[in-house]
Design a protein around this nucleic acid. Sequence first.
RNA 1: GGGCCGUUAGCUCAGUCCGGUAGAGCAGCUGACUCUUAAUCAGUUGGCCGGAGGUUCGAAUCCUUCACGGCCCA
Length: 487
Amino acid sequence: MEPIHEIMEIRRKKMEDLKSLGIEPYPQIRDEFLTTEEIRKLYDGKEEDELQKTSPRARCAGRIVSMRDFGKSVFFHILDRKGKLQVYVRKDVIQSPPYEAFKKLDIGDIVGVEGTIFKTKTKELTLLANSVTLLSKSLRPLPEKWHGLRDVEERYRKRYVDLIVNEKVRNVFTKRSQIINFIRSYLNSKDFIEVETPMMHTIPGGADAKPFITHHNALDMDLYLRIAPELYLKRLVVGGLERVFEINRNFRNEGISVKHNPEFTMLEFYQAYASYEDHMVLLEDLISRILEQLTGESKILYKGNLIDFTRPWRRYTMEEALSIFGGFNLREVSDIKNLREKAIFLGIEEAKSMSKGKLITKIFEMLCEDKLIHPTFITHYPVDVSPLAKRSKENPEIVERFELYIGGMEIANGFNELNDPFDQKQRFIEQRENKKEEYPIDEDFIVALEYGMPPTAGCGVGIDRLVMILTDSPSIREVILFPLLRP
RNA sequence: GGGCCGUUAGCUCAGUCCGGUAGAGCAGCUGACUCUUAAUCAGUUGGCCGGAGGUUCGAAUCCUUCACGGCCCA
């Protein structure tokens, strides 16, 4: 027998012993429990004498995560969603179950405890148990109490164990929820409405990425998991939903890295009668408020760098950024031949087939991206990497667009939406000519624009990456509960 | 796709250079112990050393290959 099965066999035997003592290992319950946090709030501020005099009664539930056995008494900690509470069981105090039956419980078991609250001589708030009710028997051993579960692969594959054992991991996902919650209420308060647009598209669009392909049997046609919700959200603006947002998954059939997971969460919001400059201000405000709410600080540590969120955030045109962070003067090297040489020199593989704007953008990413640690807006993107953005009045080769960089990562991308159906059609055609994939043009989107879309600014925010920054997580897999792994 | 690193007990890790019968701590199990908190003390079980091939008298250790994962590059 494998050793793990020996351990499990011992636990199964204990479970049978408990059953024969009339204790059901997986009971139905209807009791209401306080959380460990509620118990702390009620009693942690009180003095030992006062607790001793009043002996307040309390009941809570959680998983046994540690245990110290003294023979005729036992200390253990239970863990619930709010934290830990110490429980003290004495042979001469416990009423249910009999002390001998209680001793059949293991670390990992889920129990309800009921008793009186006191403080130990080291002043730890503790529940002296009158009863310990088994709520669920655990049959597998938990990882070691001191080092926990470290193996990265095992942590992702058995995230449930990771969450039990690693408090930091619980905190990351609690924070993630708070961040998303905050974004929702922020946008709601600004009169945006939340919508849900299709996850399955008949034509992939709204971004430059390879889609996942799936198939609808009844209609016998291929569908594409969406790479971006953009074209649908803009249809809604045409429809008069002037302020919309969606927080949901995008799917991109591309490489996996510390910054990329095939499915990732994106916030997109669209606001009629606003400009991309308004949205830079909105992002500053939104993210500053999240930070305020989360930490109360304006600076946070990310991967050892102190990131300063003090407003206003830096703004550079792409040309300025190339010069300042890349030492690359775009005016001196402006013709496509020289740009191509530079790109090849930098090791950009597909430089030969790239357009001028694409070359500039790639060179920018190579030279500048990882230097943009503090929140920084980059503006003045080339038109040929921005097929959905409105051209600049001053220079038709440039679009009215920004990207926000924090911690060396692209966090957000926003622009004035192209609402000229003729220009949009032309850009779609040009875009398709430069690509290998033969996806049809989304003609219905053009039709929508022909009905008239108000001047609109739109913005996408990579939620996972934002959470990475705000939780000091070095990999996107640390902020996604179940990142993609081979089976 | 390429490079480097990793995979040893349920968990955390030694052992790999330089081949010679597989080690520790925690958890588990048996005892002792009614204010401990990495409790303590005494004893103790537990390994297809990721898989498959090879080299060798002999492989966790060297070689090949595969799988999974991590980081970097594309």
